[in-house]
């Protein structure tokens, strides 16, 4: 009797409907903890504000203030465009370096390390940068890269330079160094994961057909690692676009970042202006991700 009923239910619901039902709990979580807050941020971004509170009246002030002078100052860039140019630049450099390092490390772990034990151990070693807090890391970089730090002492002792190299710390160099140091891990893991799923027979087949190591890499491994590369890229790009702590600490607070603008606004209790900047940041980041999706259709590849 019950079985009969179930059968009819199944007959009535198409396969698509069942998958949709199964996705429902997760959709709820997303709607409540992601979509709803996001909608609130967008709403607040169109509110007005004074010194100490948000005023729930429609106002585009958060946006117009942000883009103040952008038309008048052309061809010179206004604050917000300058900030985004800097953020996107840091993001691009960090992305390129983490991709190079992440791919190389993942390749080594997946194809050169044979024992599963060692693969796990070495992957865990990659998490070491996360074992210390941001403040500690910042303080630790001073004796390393500072004016009187280890690197400068070494350079001077070996006669390579005669005066301390100043750009090692509190510069774009140190920001990128810290970002790469922190976020290579987010590239390594998904690429490694993709590489582990590559059928080893395919690589052997490539070699058997006379492909060189380079050709195998280009035509077999890289295309098959694409989902990992894209996922890793999304991680790195979204984190770096929104980062203000590492940029602040390593840049001596002298380098602008999109996240920093939001922080300064929040600290001044200008919540709608902060929300407007958050919406702008989200839009820019989504555009970059959309561009990436265009290169690789991740849904098809998975």
């Amino acid at each position: 009797m019950t079985r009969l009923k179930l059968n009819t239910v199944q007959q009535r619901l198409s396969a698509g409907a069942i998958s949709r039902l199964q996705a429902l709990p997760m959709a709820f979580v997303f709607a409540f903890f992601f979509i709803l807050p996001l909608v609130l941020v967008v709403i607040v971004s169109f509110w007005d504000y004074n010194e100490y509170e948000m005023i729930p009246a429609f106002s585009g002030r958060g946006y117009t203030d942000t883009f103040e002078g952008c038309a008048a100052q052309l061809p010179e860039l206004c604050t917000i465009l300058k900030t985004y140019a800097k953020t996107v630049k840091l993001c691009a450099v960090t992305w390129a370096l983490t991709l190079l390092i992440g791919f190389t490390v993942a390749y080594f772990l997946a194809f050169h390390v044979k024992s599963r034990m060692w693969q796990i151990t070495l992957s865990l070693l990659c998490t070491i940068p996360f074992l210390t807090s941001n403040v500690i890391r910042m303080i630790a970089w001073i004796p390393m890269l500072g004016r009187n730090g280890l690197v400068n002492q070494g350079l001077q002792a070996t006669g390579i330079t005669h005066a301390p190299v100043e750009w090692l710390l509190f510069s774009e160099f140190s920001v990128v160094l810290a970002l790469v140091h922190l976020f290579s891990f987010f590239m390594i893991v998904p690429i490694f994961n993709s590489m582990m799923r590559i059928e080893r027979a395919l690589i052997e087949a490539a070699y058997d057909s006379g492909a060189t190591g380079w050709q195998t890499l280009r035509h077999v491994i890289i295309p098959l690692s694409k989902p990992g590369i894209v996922i890793g890229s999304i991680f790195v790009i979204t984190i770096v676009m929104g980062d203000f702590i590492t940029v602040g600490v390593m840049g001596g607070q002298q380098i602008a970042s999109a996240g920093k603008i939001i922080e300064v606004r929040l600290n001044a209790l200008q919540f709608p202006a902060a929300a407007a900047n958050a919406v702008i940041l989200l839009t820019v980041t989504l555009m970059i991700i959309a561009g990436l999706q265009r290169l690789v259709d991740i849904r098809k590849e998975l």
Binding site: D65, E68, T79, K82, T83, K86, Q253, Q254, I255, A256, K260, I261, V264
Partner: peptide, 8 residues
């Protein structure tokens, strides 16, 4: 706002 400009 001017402070943000200064940082940038």
């Amino acid at each position: 706002r001017k402070w943000n400009e200064f940082i940038a």
